[in-house]
Amino acid sequence: MEFGPHLLLATLEGLVQASVLTLTALGLSLVFGVMRVVNVAHGEFYMLGAVLAWFVTSMIGGSAAIGFMAALIIAPLLVGLLAALADWLVLRRIDYDPERTIVATIGLLYIIQQVTLMTYGPDAHPVAPPFNTRLALPWFEFTDGGLSMYWPWGLSTTSYKLFVIAAAIVTLLALWMLMAKSKLGLILRATQLDGETAQAFGIPVEKVYALVFGMGAALAALGAVLVVPIQQAHYLMGDDPLLLSFIVVIIGGLGSLRGTVVAAILIGMSDGIISVFFTPTLAKILATLLVAMVLVYRPNGLFGAKPA
């Protein structure tokens, strides 16, 4: 494939990956920002979103579009509720102590993964996309007759992949509105700034924590529901997103939503483009190297706040 079409294809693939990664990493970043805890089970909430999407679509049956729309609402909601419950039953009782939370969420990771293995099984299952038209893309070249258009072999995307990108942008805007403009956003930001003072002002911090933990998990689940018609639901699919989300959150700055979005696009796009032109392994090597460099030279991330 020639360079131009090749680059366009790489960019499109990278954008799809960046969209899903942005949602997943935002969930992780939100939880860290407000609660100051690291959720190692985040990838499993992502996986649960995909698996629940499969359950919902296969139970509803009928048209793929209806099943998918239902999954888009039900799966993140259920995963969010489950995460809030886990927060209430486990994290609250260990006082959100950072080290103990890590151990507790590792335990949660194994429980979710193994229960999924025991119920859903070890096989990958597909979810039908609501719509999926192949869109061949044209390219331009200079010939003797001037500029002409042609259709390179393999240069294409699907309508569903474009939908994933659009859906991610809409979710991002909604989340930004929620954080910046609503009363709930104000409460979240107050808790993030200083939990104890917030409590003194009558904010039910424990409930806010449960809500945030649930929201973070629901964001991961939403990303997974969006990706599952492209990939498939599998009980081990949470490992990669967890690693990539950590990379994104470290580069962007823990707790900085703006930094998370920028870093997710950076990592998602570079992963797409580097894997297309070179190898996927090189993309992972470079991303991890970037993490190391950020930790050395900007320990708070590209957009992280300086420690007080």
């Binding site: 494939m1 090749h6 294809l9 790489a10 693939e13 990956q17 393999g154 492209i230 990939q231 498939q232 599998h234 699919m237 990669d240 797409g272 894997s275 297309v276 996927p280």
Partner: peptide
């Protein structure tokens, strides 16, 4: 691997 389109331009 879970996504493959990125390999195919090498064909």
């Amino acid at each position: 691997e879970t996504s493959f389109t990125k390999y195919f331009p090498q064909i």
